[in-house]
Simulated scan of single mutants.
Amino acid sequence: MKTATCLALLVSLGLLTACESKPFAGAYVYPNDRYLEENVARWNSMINTINAWNDSPLADEFHAAIESGDDLSKFHFRLNLVHDSAVKSRIDAERLAHRKEADDLHQHLLTSLQSTADMFSIMVNLADLPKGYTAEQATSLLTRLEHATERMDTDLQILSDAQDSFAKSEKIRLTTRDHARP
């Protein structure tokens, strides 16, 4: 009896271990309305991060430092954090389980997160420029940044349109809020 009980426990433990080792086995598959909510939440978070480096006193300081040829190393830590956050957001988004009809929308989210990470990567490279960097060094990176920003803007617009289209096709009402109003 002891041997049978011990064997049953070992088999049970083995089965539990096997179940745990399968990545995302039994992952919760969001219903379409909940998936869209998650998708939009990640989009909003991304936009807030982008705006912090595009339209804020910090952004003004960063762009002024570039224009005047100042040392950009003071921005490195914060840019590295947002770049790492964008990369992590994309990795986390890959794990979002969704229904088949949300495949296209999901791919647009992943593409947008990747283009955001790419843009912040170039900004980190700018902040890595050595003191006394040359105009050629900055110009090359600024050109790459301009292209990456344009691509990101396009990807974000495509994602926004895909969210609207998905909501319409699934008869989900999207609500928007003007953040300028209290």
Rank of each mutant, 00 (worst) to 15 (best):
I66H: 01
A93E: 04
F77Y: 01
K88L: 12
N39D: 15
T49G: 14
A93I: 01
A52G: 10
N80K: 11
S12K: 02
R78I: 03
A86W: 00
A86Q: 00
E94L: 06
D71C: 05
N54G: 03
E37Q: 14
K74M: 03
S89A: 15
Q107N: 04
H63W: 10
N39H: 11
L13R: 02
C19E: 10
T49N: 15
K100E: 09
A27F: 03
A65W: 07
D84V: 00
R42T: 04
T17M: 07
L79W: 00
E38F: 04
K22Y: 04
F24S: 08
L81G: 06
A8R: 04
D55H: 05
A52V: 10
E37H: 07
L72M: 12
H83L: 14
N54Y: 05
N48Q: 12
F24G: 05
A25T: 06
M46A: 14
E20D: 07
E37T: 09
S89Q: 15
V29Q: 12
S45W: 10
D71R: 06
H83K: 15
E94K: 06
R34F: 09
N51P: 03
R42F: 06
H83Q: 15
L16N: 13
I50M: 10
A59Q: 08
Q107F: 02
S73G: 08
V82M: 03
E20P: 02
L109W: 14
S89L: 09
H76E: 08
L36I: 15
L79F: 09
S89M: 09
S68D: 11
S56G: 12
D71K: 08
N48D: 15
E101R: 07
P31G: 07
P23C: 02
L15T: 03
P57R: 04
R90G: 13
G14T: 05
S45K: 13
D71H: 07
L109H: 02
F62I: 11
R34K: 13
E101D: 11
E94G: 04
L16P: 08
T49L: 11
W43S: 12
T111Y: 01
D33I: 07
T17G: 13
W53V: 03
Q107D: 09
S45H: 10
R99Y: 04
A97G: 12
N51A: 08
D84N: 13
A59G: 07
L96G: 01
L79D: 02
N54L: 04
L110K: 00
F24I: 06
A64L: 12
L13C: 01
A18L: 12
Y30L: 13
N32E: 14
N51T: 10
P31D: 15
R34Y: 10
D71W: 01
Y35I: 14
H106Q: 12
F24E: 06
R99D: 10
L58I: 11
E94H: 09
L9I: 07
L110C: 01
D103T: 15
R34M: 10
I91E: 15
P31R: 09
G26T: 11
S112L: 02
R95L: 13
K100L: 05
L13T: 00
D70A: 14
A25Y: 11
L109A: 04
L58F: 05
D104V: 08
D33L: 07
S12E: 06
W53Y: 10
A27H: 00
L72I: 03
L15V: 00
D33W: 01
L10K: 00
L13W: 05
L105S: 01
E61I: 02
F62R: 04
T17P: 01
L58W: 03
